[in-house]
C-alpha cells in the first residue's frame, strides 16, 4: 500500500530557469526502505523536499499518507504529524541538552511535560544515549549528535522518516551504527524510511534504490 505517491511532479526555480524536477512519478510503499541516489545536481534533494512536504511542486501532485499536499493548508503541522527529518549535519541547538533537543518538535504541541520527557528519554535510550541525556552537543561525538538527531526525528512517531545523507558527516564506524539503527527502526515499527545518499554501502541496504538523473527517475532497482 503506497504511503507516498508523486504524479508527474515538476519543480522550477528562478522563474523556470532551473528545472530541478522534470516529471517525477514515484510510489513508496508503507514500511519500505528506499534509497535515492544520483549525482550532484540531479534533483535528489529537491525530490526529498517534495517527499517530506518541505516544498510543493510547480506542477504535478504529491500525496503523502492519503493527503494531497496541494490541498493541505498547514504543511508545518502536517510534517509534525507525518514526517521525521534527519539531516546530514545534525542541526542540533547548541545551547540545549540532548533531552531538550529531542523535545524540540513537541514545543507548543499540547503534549504534557511528563509525556514529552518520558518520550524523549525512551528515544535516547533506544538510540543508545541513556548516559548522555543532559549533555550539550559540544560534549557529544559526531555519531552521538546524529543519534540525538534521529531521536528528535522520531519523537512524534512519524509515518515517514526522511534522511538526507545521514552518514555524510560521520566516520565509517558511526556510519554503520547509524544505518543499523535506522534499519532496526524501519523493521521494528514499520515506519517508511527514505534515505538520500552518495554511499553505495548505504544504498545497498535499501529495499529499493531509486536513481535520479537530470530531474527524472532514471531507474529503480529492487534489493537482491
Amino acid at each position: 500500500m503506497p504511503i507516498i505517491e508523486t504524479y508527474d511532479v515538476v519543480k522550477h526555480f528562478d522563474d523556470g530557469a532551473i528545472r530541478a524536477l522534470d516529471g517525477v512519478t514515484l510510489q513508496v510503499d508503507e514500511g519500505e526502505f528506499v534509497a535515492i541516489v544520483g549525482p550532484s545536481g540531479s534533483g535528489k534533494s529537491t525530490l526529498l523536499n517534495m517527499l517530506g512536504a518541505l516544498d510543493t511542486p510547480t506542477s504535478g501532485r504529491v500525496v503523502i499518507d492519503g493527503v494531497d499536499l496541494a490541498r493541505e493548508r498547514d504543511l508545518a503541522s502536517f510534517r509534525r504529524r507525518t514526517v521525521g527529518f534527519v539531516f546530514q549535519l545534525h542541526n542540533l541547538i547548541p545551547t540545549l541538552s540532548a533531552m531538550e533537543n529531542v523535545q524540540i518538535p513537541l514545543v507548543d504541541s499540547g503534549v504534557s511535560r511528563r509525556d514529552r520527557v518520558s518520550t524523549a528519554r525512551g528515544l535516547l535510550e533506544r538510540v543508545g544515549l541513556s548516559e548522555r541525556l543532559d549533555n550539550l552537543p559540544t560534549k557529544l561525538s559526531g555519531g552521538e549528535r546524529q543519534r540525538v538527531a534521529i531521536a528528535r526525528a522520531l519523537v512524534h512517531r512519524p509515518r515517514v522518516l526522511i534522511a538526507d545523507e545521514p552518514t555524510g558527516a560521520v566516520d565509517s564506524e558511526n556510519s554503520a551504527r547509524i544505518m543499523e539503527l535506522l534499519r532496526e527502526i524501519n523493521r521494528e515499527t514499520g515506519m517508511t524510511l527514505i534515505v538520500v545518499t552518495h554511499d553505495a554501502q548505504v544504498a545497498a541496504e535499501a529495499d529499493r534504490v531509486v536513481r535520479v538523473l537530470d530531474g527524472r527517475i532514471a531507474d529503480h532497482e529492487e534489493a537482491a
Partner: peptide, 9 residues
C-alpha cells in the same frame, strides 16, 4: 530545522 520538524509560523 524548526520548521522542518513541524514548528508553525
Amino acid at each position: 530545522v524548526l520548521k522542518a520538524v513541524g514548528w508553525r509560523r
